[in-house]
Design a protein around this nucleic acid. Sequence first.
DNA 1: CATCCGTGGCG
DNA 2: TCGCCAAGGAT
Length: 347
Amino acid sequence: MSFANKLIAWYRSEGRDLPWRKTQDPYIIWLSEVILQQTRVEQGLPYFYTFVEHFPSVAEFAAANEDEVLRLWQGLGYYSRARNMHKAAKIVVQDYQGQFPCDYEDLLSLPGVGEYTAAAISSFSVGECKAVLDGNVFRVLARVFGIPTAINTGEGKKLFQALAQDLISTSDPGTYNHAIMDFGATVCKPKAPLCGDCIFRGECAALEEDTVALLPVKLKAKKSRDRYFNYFVIEDDGMILMSKRGSEDVWANMYEFPLIETKDKLELEELIHTEEYRTAFGDAVVKPLGGVTKHVLSHQNIYARFFRLPNAKDVLEKKDTWHYFLLENLDKLAKHKLVFSFIDKYL
DNA sequence: CATCCGTGGCG
DNA sequence: TCGCCAAGGAT
């Protein structure tokens, strides 16, 4: 049996039953695929249900405002996915009369839809013969065929993309794409793969050469940088001062408390004498709330501290991005994890 | 094209 | 504790 047919046969008996596999609606498939970018199924699943329920059609998605979309996305990370989805929904309504495209090239033109997602949607919805290339496919192919080329290089991507397209089932591309990803996620796993009863155990190059744990090869990423965030909790008569982040940095357009970032780790005594602090808060009383929280992002380590400013409202120099909200309305704002977990704990 | 963009789970 | 990495995309 061919490589593709083995995978498809395995998938028909062992594949997982996931909700987005029951439909051929490109809109629903798009929701699931973007949610699942760099995200485990278990983590994305509740968000998929939320988005399907909240936005049953692309027209309703497009009619929302960005803050609402980000609020629903809160906690899932990589928030540009949500902002790009919102832009894409508007494009589909305007340029495609609300008919979500199934064509690979049309899909590729949408913001937030790259080669992987365009291949997934077009193959799952109308059976277009485009091979998906994601982390699972890299791993399965690297091991079964014993390919030592680093996957995060131009050469590696080109090589694996060509091989993937060469191996795809031309009679059932959609099922094949589901199969190889599901196989990678549940059998040919990064750690502790189930080689013992693998369908390729008789022909897997990595198993034969005992290099399963070494493949795929991936060049190491640059080390993360450290940042120091000081957040200030300022209340005024049941209202709390919140700040909306800009579009350039991490957590774009998300809400948080007024922030002063310092270049180095500063003691409170040093912090209150910085120019930025003096300008914003003068000599208002400061009370620390808890200790230092280390928050790890993909390329940064953020060391955050929180302070309460009990009487800052009298001396405050308010910035444009700062607005008061009722405490009970904070729930409606899209906040990043560092801030909403603090709120859950202390407010 | 190297780097940036979150969060959570796991060995 | 720490590093890896997970159904990637944009710049």
